Simulated assay, not measured.
Amino acid sequence: MHFHGYEWAGDGRLLAKEPERRPVEGAGFRLSELPPMMTGWWLLRPAAQIRGTWETATDAADWLTERYEEHTPGGDPWLPIEARRQCAIEQLTGASDVMWSRWISDTRWSSHYVIVCPNKIWPDIPCPTAYAARAASPSD
């Protein structure tokens, strides 16, 4: 198991473009930068959309924390960032995807995702980078 990071920030009203966010509704899904409707569907997107890959839940949660803090100046008043980070580590260790998102202005939405790969909910979706196969093979 390893983890891929993704992010999207933009006009939150664009999230209503559901056909671009569903893999069954046309070719626009693969090319769209909008977040998919289901977290595991990120793995169907081109590898170029991956912002990082990690072997440990802690490393993935650290990236998530850094990115979230960058897009959430002044922090989140409802949940301290360290508590949020610890919860993410627990979720990822348990093979559950993690998504942190919020409105950062009247119209701007910011979202950050760490997706477990292979994904237990979508086991037939292959790793977009074949990371697992490379990690398992001996070095030359």
Rank of each mutant, 00 (worst) to 15 (best):
Y6L: 06
Y6C: 04
A9T: 14
G10E: 10
D11I: 02
D11L: 04
G12D: 08
L14V: 11
L14G: 10
L14Y: 09
L15W: 03
L15K: 01
A16L: 11
E18H: 12
P19K: 11
E20K: 11
R22I: 15
R22Y: 12
G28A: 09
R30F: 11
L31D: 14
L31T: 13
S32Q: 05
E33R: 12
L34H: 08
L34V: 07
L34Y: 03
L34C: 07
L34T: 09
P36A: 04
P36D: 02
M37Y: 15
M37S: 14
M37E: 15
M38I: 14
M38N: 13
T39A: 14
G40T: 04
G40K: 03
G40Q: 01
W42D: 03
W42Y: 08
A47S: 15
A48W: 13
A48K: 13
Q49N: 08
G52F: 07
W54E: 02
W54H: 05
E55S: 12
T56N: 03
T58K: 13
T58P: 09
A61V: 04
D62E: 06
D62H: 02
W63D: 04
L64C: 06
L64A: 02
L64M: 05
T65N: 03
E66I: 08
E66Y: 10
E66F: 11
Y68F: 15
Y68T: 13
E69G: 13
E70Y: 14
T72K: 03
G75Q: 00
G75M: 01
D76S: 00
D76V: 01
P77A: 01
P77G: 01
P77C: 00
W78C: 11
L79E: 11
P80H: 03
A83N: 08
A83T: 12
R84S: 10
R85M: 00
C87K: 15
A88L: 03
I89M: 06
E90I: 12
E90N: 14
Q91E: 12
L92I: 02
T93N: 05
T93H: 00
G94D: 13
A95M: 08
S96W: 13
S96I: 09
D97R: 00
D97H: 01
W103N: 08
W103L: 10
I104Y: 09
S105A: 06
S105Q: 09
S105D: 07
T107G: 10
R108E: 15
W109M: 04
S110T: 03
S110Y: 04
S111N: 08
H112V: 05
Y113P: 02
V114E: 02
